[in-house]
């Protein structure tokens, strides 16, 4: 279990993090979202002991992270950190050895990991000869191959196409099922929403949102409707309680004043019987993210 309590680390006003608190249980995934410079990387660095916090504590299994815990940590830095002249195998074996895993164990496990992430290349290929996406995958393998218990992933999805992003999501879920505590940051709200048990949104170092994805979304009410019906645009714009109408193909996306407007809208849309689509939901995380950013500006 990772416990971060009242963590503050300031570099200059508006940089770093302020009074950040969260807990990640074993087998739990936490998604950290926020704009560039919101304090995500700072949070990771403080957890890893690369930075000393000004205030607050970081406890891993009830004690501060020490040298003895390094072997149970898996860390993926935001930018690639690989020796470009080394072969894939040497690279992964070395990083795993630094985390206390014997080279023989790594060598045995590596082919499976390569296959799982669909890395294009042989074990003996040099890192610099790989594409950016494949380098990213090798970095991920190096982060996860020693079966860490505390996994910290800084922008793991950046640079991956949807197919590979799915492979990564699957691996993260598997690590979670093995009882790891996982924290990751991402700009892609879809990834975050799908796999996170808990969400934390930072803005200029301050925590603006915290909770499960459902909790956070429901705070904003079921005020979004997606509709395909005989009602035309003019009717929808004029409908009482509808604030905004956007056409998406042959469907409309509406923003409502409050949840109750949805009932009236449903009645009106179905007055002539069957309609192919009506869904009323809270705003997506993507939207909430944008709302929050706008609110604090």
């Amino acid at each position: 279990m990772l416990t971060v309590a009242n963590l503050t680390k300031r570099f200059c006003p508006k940089q770093g993090v302020e009074d950040e608190s969260f807990t990640i249980q074993e087998g739990e995934i936490m998604g950290l979202i926020g704009q560039n410079g919101a304090g995500k990387t700072t949070t990771f660095r403080v957890i890893l002991n690369l930075l000393q916090p000004d205030r607050g504590t970081v406890l891993w299994q009830g004690h501060p992270l020490t040298k003895a815990d390094y072997n149970t940590v898996g860390f993926l830095p935001e930018e690639r950190g690989l020796y470009t002249r080394m072969s894939i195998q040497d690279q992964v074996v070395y990083f795993a050895a630094l985390r206390g895993q014997k080279p023989a164990v790594t060598r045995k496990a590596l082919p499976q990991w390569m296959a799982r992430f669909n890395v294009k290349g042989k074990l003996t290929d040099k890192i610099r000869d790989l594409s950016k996406g494949n380098q990213q995958k090798v970095q991920l393998i190096a982060t996860l191959i020693h079966q860490p218990k505390l996994i910290i992933l800084d922008e793991p999805f950046s640079g991956l196409d949807p197919v590979n992003a799915q492979l990564l999501e699957d691996s993260i879920i598997e690590m979670k099922q093995n009882g790891a505590s996982i924290i990751f940051s991402s700009h892609d709200m879809a990834n975050v929403e799908r796999i996170s048990d808990h969400l934390l949104m930072l803005r200029n170092g301050e925590t603006v949102l915290s909770g499960t994805p459902d909790e956070i979304r429901s705070q904003f009410g079921n005020t979004r409707v997606r509709l395909r019906s005989p009602l035309d645009r003019a009717t929808l714009v004029a409908f009482p309680g509808v604030n905004d109408v956007q056409q998406r193909g042959n469907a409309y996306e509406l923003t409502l004043d409050n949840e109750a407007v949805g009932h009236d809208l449903f009645k009106a849309a179905t007055s002539k019987g069957y309609i192919p689509e009506f869904s009323q939901e809270p705003p997506s995380l993507d939207e909430i993210f944008r709302i929050e950013v706008a609110n604090h500006e």
């Binding site: 890893l48 002991n49 690369l50 940590v73 860390f75 930018e79 950190g81 470009t84 985390r99 190096a142």
Partner: peptide, 10 residues
């Protein structure tokens, strides 16, 4: 290149 972050956390 961010190798140091990995090394120092290992």
């Amino acid at each position: 290149s961010h190798i140091m972050e990995i090394l120092v956390s290992s």
